[in-house]
Design a protein around this nucleic acid. Sequence first.
DNA 1: ACTCAGGATTTGAACGATCAAATTTTTGAA
DNA 2: TTCAAAAATTTGATCGTTCAAATCCTGAGT
Lengths: 375, 375
Amino acid sequence: MDRLPTIEDVARAAQVSRQTVSNVLNTPAIVKPETRKRVEVAIRKLAYRPHASARRLRMRKSSTIAIRLDPMTNGISGALLDRFLHALTEQADARGIRILLFTAADPAAEIEQIRKLRAGADVDAFVLTATFHGDPRTEWLVEHDVPFVTFGRPWGVNDMNNPKHLWVDVDGFAGMREATLHLIDAGSSRIGFVGWPSLSGTGDDRRRGWQAAVEERLFPGDGDLAALNLSVEDLLEDARDAVVALLESDERIDGLVCASDTLALGAMIAAASVGRSDLPIIGFDNSPVGQAIGLSSVDQALDEVARGALELLLGETGGDLVRRDAAAAGDTRHRLITPHLVIRQPLRLLAPDAVSIPTATKNAVGNHRNGKESQ
Amino acid sequence: MDRLPTIEDVARAAQVSRQTVSNVLNTPAIVKPETRKRVEVAIRKLAYRPHASARRLRMRKSSTIAIRLDPMTNGISGALLDRFLHALTEQADARGIRILLFTAADPAAEIEQIRKLRAGADVDAFVLTATFHGDPRTEWLVEHDVPFVTFGRPWGVNDMNNPKHLWVDVDGFAGMREATLHLIDAGSSRIGFVGWPSLSGTGDDRRRGWQAAVEERLFPGDGDLAALNLSVEDLLEDARDAVVALLESDERIDGLVCASDTLALGAMIAAASVGRSDLPIIGFDNSPVGQAIGLSSVDQALDEVARGALELLLGETGGDLVRRDAAAAGDTRHRLITPHLVIRQPLRLLAPDAVSIPTATKNAVGNHRNGKESQ
DNA sequence: ACTCAGGATTTGAACGATCAAATTTTTGAA
DNA sequence: TTCAAAAATTTGATCGTTCAAATCCTGAGT
């Protein structure tokens, strides 16, 4: 046999009709156990699997979700999408859903790609990442009634309550607050925050988490919060320079929390270069680089994000049916995932007054492969 | 109209038959220009796109290539697959091919996944990454006559000439040799190599590149090569410790080339910690982290790798037909891509005897966004 | 005017599955 | 034993496209 076996081949082999074979596969309950057995044997013997395209054509759904592969590798946290993709693919596989990739240089191109994929009935739904304020993509999708979910909440006030806009996001506020509280519990009493210019909703959210923890436990004086609050682009150098300046201007600082691992790494370098290698620093993203270098960080729990996204799109039960009407999608239209703090023993970039690393220090260095989570 | 337009709708709108519309799309040459115009207008007006599943069913091919998303984020170079995936998706899109993802914990599970995808006629061909010696996957694929291409050459001698095994790889030898020659041209005369234990073909290949350059230009003495040749796991810490030891035991070392950016970063830290921040170091992979930190590195030219992979699978012309018989796939069964050295101004981890970074140094720090390639 | 080649277009069948309805078999109670 | 209801199975139609063959034009040659 030079072609793949069809349902007809199985039917012949099991002495039943097409439909019975189909039933064994889709609604086994309604077929007599005896015949079912026979069919199952035939299926195994022929190594039969239903032809995906044929099934999709008949069912009028593709059981495929598309996601855009971000063109920019966001510096150090670049692997974020990578890990999310992995989690998404795994979760989707468990539900019999496939993940399809596409690329686009800008939002307009992405919309065009979505239109094409959609018109070709290639995919049922889309997962969008890196949403931003006034995102034209979500607008278009809602307008054209295309099922989608975003990783990242809509920051516009209007969109927030649009029942057609499903979203999953990580609770940056909670994550940063936990990180800050951890430092306070460990003895820090003057903690700085390194974040981004307040254009991004994500950055502001994380900043507020730091601020909340500081206010509820450290009772900062007038102007303290402003003095401890840095805003720089997500670049290693910028963070390093800003943190060097901060540490030199304020000797009492005994802890730093950062809006990203990139910033945190910059901060580590800065701390080391002003002789403060001991300064506790916590980042955000739990990036591979952070892991390699022993950086404590807030982990985004991407598998939970992925699961949440699929649940919103497909329903809790995991059926392979995409629900068009948001009303059927369960109670909520969104998920806010609480991230978890991962504490690590930092790898000292260098001991300030030792030319080589003393054995004692060396042994104290934690292995990045068993960073344990707090709480 | 609540359903997507079909070819029949277009036919009606253009006053022609199904088949004529089909011809306009697939073999426009055989349809009279006048009618063609009319059909094209109708297509545009209805925003029609052929139903992908229907077409695939009829054509008996899926125009889809699957690739496994690697479960392990390989430390710092993790984004490698990420970038390859992006390049692959872009190249595939240009040829009307879709990229499908799947995951698997181990080779056996991967084979099972491939079997399923294949049996469901879901995909036409596979791209394999991270091949290794005696890889059971390639064996299985060859055995079952499934079209595939590997990113990574087959290291077994037998497989090397198997005409069914198409592969693309990066010429690690050439890359490492170029990096070493670059250091020599810049004045280095005693260059160490930091690589992996010689189990991996890839690592050995890169090591030989260093060795070749050193032998042809620096005429090393007896035992020199062995003394300058480090082998450690691909871990920051291991690399750091090994390099610290090397630098302390041999003061004359004035350059390092490394088999990965992870190792190179470890080496940078080591160099800084023994007061040799100035030591020129070149890595391999051109990872985002390396970019952020100003690490010179050998770039794998992943878009060329992706293009090569698709060319081998689909033929140069870019038609959307997967050729089963390797004989038709052109002259060669493989591509060896020459990587390019990217030189950057390193970000000083810290100036050994300055507690803060002097302005002069600061200005000399290169911006990672415009690293320029050599040659 | 008539034929014939050739191009242009249309029609019927198929791809492999599921749905809806029809048919056959089994069950259970009168 | 009989018959209706329920369960199990089968048959015909359909999803939207392309292939293969049939049909319809068009214009040149006699």
